[in-house]
């Protein structure tokens, strides 16, 4: 029996724009197991949201299209799923919390109508029942005066309230997989803690697998079992939360963790990784991070590094793990895929 809920295999999602083809997701492979919370972190614009939209088959087409790879949800490759099948899956088997609530809340309809409709799409319940459920859900995510807010329009809510409406909607149907794209950015830390608790309960009690995209490494430490780090459309490192946060292997991950502002130190200048992400284009050769990497050497510009498999299911896309390079970190084992 396989315990894998979601498996992405060499996923490629490209945008076909006036100025050329943009490989936003450029060969991403990752798995999410049953009952697991997997964090996805990475540079702004590296393809995290497009990866999750691909799973839901919600990449705007045109200009976007999945051009290669597999999205296996349990035993089904969603790349080939019909529209009808996808409608069943969305909100029912896989729920998604979108990064920007206003992209998925309709400004013209009251919160309540949108929630009731969402619930009734998947379950045969009366309007009144669905409305009562919605109010319960709003209370569950800590929204005060839920019985009034349900008749508000989205613009009448604060940023964090909108975000919680989205969270409430995603939890309505007991999904098997919850994809949460920056679900707590607009929440203060006390409510954030409450939402993380809710997600943890969902995960523990219902065995819901969670794919959590976030920039907040504190949240990652709090709730994730495993972390996948992305850069420029690729997975560049993967490991347990502890390994990634305490002993990052890839130079990008190292730089990321070094950039954290620290509550305890009083430095004036924050560290940030020098340079910016180059324009994503087709046919790039070499390590995507090379122009900004302090360890880069010739080979990094001439060849694509593989995702080196290290011990404990850990992996890193960096030549420094290649034993033949006389690496700093050692541990480089077999090379798989690209």
């Amino acid at each position: 029996m396989s315990d894998i809920v979601l498996e992405l295999k060499d996923l490629h999602t490209h945008f076909f724009t006036d100025s050329g083809e943009v490989p936003a997701v450029d060969g991403v492979s990752l798995t999410v197991n049953k009952g697991e919370v997997v964090g996805i972190v990475g540079e702004s614009g590296c393809g995290k949201s497009v990866t999750s939209l691909s799973v839901m088959q919600l990449v705007p087409n045109p200009p976007g299209r999945i051009v290669g790879g597999e999205i296996n949800f349990k035993d089904e490759n969603l790349v080939n799923a019909s529209n009808k099948r996808m409608k069943q899956i969305r909100g029912n088997e896989i729920a998604m919390i979108f990064q920007e609530p206003m992209t998925s809340l309709d400004p013209l309809f009251k919160i309540g109508n949108q929630m009731v409709e969402g619930i009734r799409l998947h379950e045969k319940v009366s309007k009144q029942e669905a409305r009562n459920r919605s109010i319960e859900l709003l209370k569950l995510v800590g929204i005060p005066r839920a019985d009034e807010v349900i008749d508000d329009y989205p613009h009448q809510l604060s940023g964090g309230m909108r975000q919680r409406v989205m969270i409430a909607m995603s939890m309505a149907c007991n999904p098997e997989l919850l994809i949460a794209d920056e679900p707590t950015t607009a929440l203060d830390v006390t409510i954030q803690a409450q939402i993380l608790d809710l997600m943890r309960n969902l995960n523990k009690e219902k065995d819901t697998a969670i794919m959590l995209i976030t920039h907040d490494l504190g949240v990652v430490a709090e709730i994730c079992d495993r972390v996948v780090v992305m850069y420029a459309g690729q997975v560049i490192e993967e490991g347990t939360t502890r390994e990634i946060l305490k002993a990052p292997n890839h130079p990008y991950t190292k730089g990321l963790i070094r950039s954290l502002p620290n509550m305890k130190q009083k430095e004036q200048k924050l560290y940030s990784i020098p340079g910016t992400v180059p324009k994503p284009k087709m046919g790039r050769i070499g390590c995507r991070f090379a122009p900004r990497c302090e360890f880069a050497f010739d080979r990094c510009f001439q060849e694509d590094p593989a995702l080196y498999q290290l011990e404990n299911g850990r992996s890193s896309r960096c030549f420094l793990n290649d034993k033949t390079e006389g690496s700093l970190t050692g541990n480089g084992e077999t090379i798989v895929g690209n």
């Binding site: 005060p144 803690a193 502890r242 509550m263």
Partner: peptide, 27 residues
């Protein structure tokens, strides 16, 4: 509020002040 800040250090465990009760309504 300060006690609820999540830290990126997986080894750091702190006492959290959990706020009981519902968030009151501004109306």
């Amino acid at each position: 509020l300060l006690s609820a800040v999540p830290t990126p250090d997986p080894d750091e465990k702190r006492e959290r002040v959990i706020l009981e009760g519902d968030v009151p309504s501004p109306s």
